[in-house]
Amino acid sequence: MSRRGALLAVLLSALAALGAEPSLAPDRADLVKRLVGRFYEQENLAGSSGKILRDVVLVQRIVTSEAESRKASIVVIFCKNPKVSLVFLTDETGRATAFLQRGTDTWIYRESLRIPLKVSLSQSVFGDANLGDILGLNLVEDFTCTSVAEEENSYIFQFKRISTTYPYSGVDVVADQESGDFSAIHYRSYAGGIIRQAALSDYASLNGGHRVPTWTISSLHLNTARSTKISYEDIKPLSIPEAFFQPNANSLSQFLRWAGNYK
């Protein structure tokens, strides 16, 4: 390589480095992969590295804490291939609502409707919880870790989103150094400020070796006196007809009828 060529290569690398994100040290990258991967396999079932889970049903209970607390129940179905999720919500009045996520698109539907409505993952489901909370963060595939910090007995992982599905620019994950369990997640807006936060506690074992926490979510902007708790009751595999995963009134109506029996 000529002197001029070498100089150019150095210059281009420097320029590239200026625009590039700082990469994690190998040991840190390993740490992240291990903890996040474990969390993902055990808790968030929308696809984890190495394991293919299909048609898994996750039954949750969701409670708001306000002057009068309200409750609802949620049935979540994940399918990795194609990447779809169905959520069945029954509120206190018995109203059933279906949410369908296919790739980056999301719909909401009810029996009384003629057509589903296209919404986003930030669509509120119940209390402070939105659809994204119910479906969980895919920190493995949809985010990239940009830094790892240590504070007292915790690791603080900073994630930046890759997928445009999420209404956040990034999240900060707090993990216990000893157990490796996640204890808190802070959600950042596009302006960089923290707009929501979730406390993860009361880890419990569920069917199939799954270890899941209770999520307590609160908005830092709206109704700060309220928080919403999502807890898990059951996880099991189930065979779900492909027809349910279509974004039309007919298939979603069928899903609602099926899920209504599965409470």
Binding site: R70, D91, T93, T97, I108, R110, S112, L113, R114, I115, P116, L117, V119, S124, V125
Partner: peptide, 18 residues
Amino acid sequence: EYVTIMTTTVDGTMNLVS
């Protein structure tokens, strides 16, 4: 044609109608 309208009821819950 039909369209879906979604809003919050006076008691704070979500509601949709065609």
